[in-house]
Design a protein around this nucleic acid. Structure first.
Lengths: 213, 213
DNA sequence: TGTACATCAGTGAACGCGCGTTCACTGATGTAC
DNA sequence: TGTACATCAGTGAACGCGCGTTCACTGATGTAC
């Protein structure tokens, strides 16, 4: 914060809790969720290093709030896509995948925060963020709607959802962590996703012939 | 180390460099690669905290050695699978995917180390580990061999490889980080991979119809 | 085969740093009367 | 409308801890003569 900011600022911040969550989210975005320091978030919000303890039990508690924010944003984006595409349509499924990838691309650090190692270690202390369950629930029901309406029968919506999720998750992760650069490839992620997604949606019978030998 | 160990141990370790790499790998496996402390690796190898500096420039240098070890192991496993399956066959491709997933499952922490956030931040300082490029190169050529031999024409081996990689990568990551637990699913990963992999191998023409509108 | 000496691979103590967290405090706010 | 007071939301200084790294050192090893 600049000197002018300091002058203008009132003693009471007004919305410090949210300011800290946003500051923390930005810091995580910049440096990864393991390097994130509570002190830095306070600094960025323009308060002393002790101030956060008026709003959060400890560092972990603030981190959890960021997770809630992130998963809430993902489920918002998901609902938006659902509203924009006819329920049960193929484009709807593909658009959801694209939405997932762009969410990861837009908020790189949230990938690890939500689905990475640190998210994993944080379990047990707190229940999983509601947005995560909700997001997948929305996706699953969209896939189920497609299964209902499609000519392809006997497709298990849960299995299909998991496959599509894994595909989008893998593509997003590899792209976001610049792994394609390392092998000298620079694919169009959206196109790969659409093409592979269509294969998954269509390829049921053929696949079944092979796996059931 | 126990008192007995200390008694038996010679002043010169003999193979401290490798012992440190292994200790570091174990620690990373247990606590993630961001929590890993050089001091702990030294402790585990039974030497003072200054000893590692006889073999590594700094913490990062040791971490890089662990990456080399990990990527070397992956390319070894890959070669083993290639030797066990006929070149150009469908099972070969599927077995490679299964191999990738089991590598991740066996060495959870290497996932983030090799393809995660920290791997990303580490770039620039050092060239990417050779094992990574080599591993993908082997996979790509296996896929290309399948494309050559299969009835399906006009399939770009690189694109197909990336799709299959992303699928296996996503499945492995989600499974390893226990994300399926959070949504109350406990799928058979190998079966999902085989089924979805077959769809990707087969679904070319159908997919093309849809993407090219 | 024995000895002097250079080199190597460790030790242990210490440093500096940054971070999480606590504590006594103080300025601002809202409310009862 | 004014005042007393409880409560809230900050401050700033300090702490303890663990880690990365350095430094002067010393025990072990190998080699030239």
């Amino acid at each position: 914060m600049t000197a002018a900011d300091k002058k203008n600022r009132r003693y009471h911040h007004g919305d410090l809790r949210n300011a800290l969550i946003v500051a923390a989210a930005e810091l995580i975005e910049e440096g990864g969720c393991d390097d994130f320091a509570l002190v830095d978030a306070a600094r960025r919000a323009g308060v002393s290093s002790a101030a956060p303890y008026r709003h959060f039990r400890d560092r972990e508690d603030l981190l959890q709030a960021v997770v809630e924010l992130a998963s809430w944003e993902l489920s918002c984006r998901t609902r938006k896509v659902l509203a924009e595409h006819p329920r049960g349509s193929r484009e709807c499924i593909l658009a959801l995948g694209k939405c997932y990838v762009s969410f990861v691309t837009d908020h790189g650090a949230f990938y690890d925060l939500l689905w990475g190692d640190s998210s994993n270690r944080r379990q047990g202390s707190q229940p999983p963020p509601t947005g995560k369950r909700e997001g997948f629930g929305l996706f699953l029901s969209a896939v189920a709607a497609w299964c209902d309406g499609s000519a392809v029968t006997e497709q298990d919506p849960l299995d299909l959802s998991l496959k599509l999720w894994a595909l989008a998750h893998g593509l997003a992760g590899l792209a976001m962590h610049h792994q394609f650069d390392l092998i000298d490839a620079s694919p169009d992620i959206d196109e790969l996703l659409a093409s592979a997604g269509n294969s998954l949606l269509d390829g049921v019978e053929l696949a079944r012939d092979h796996t059931k030998r």
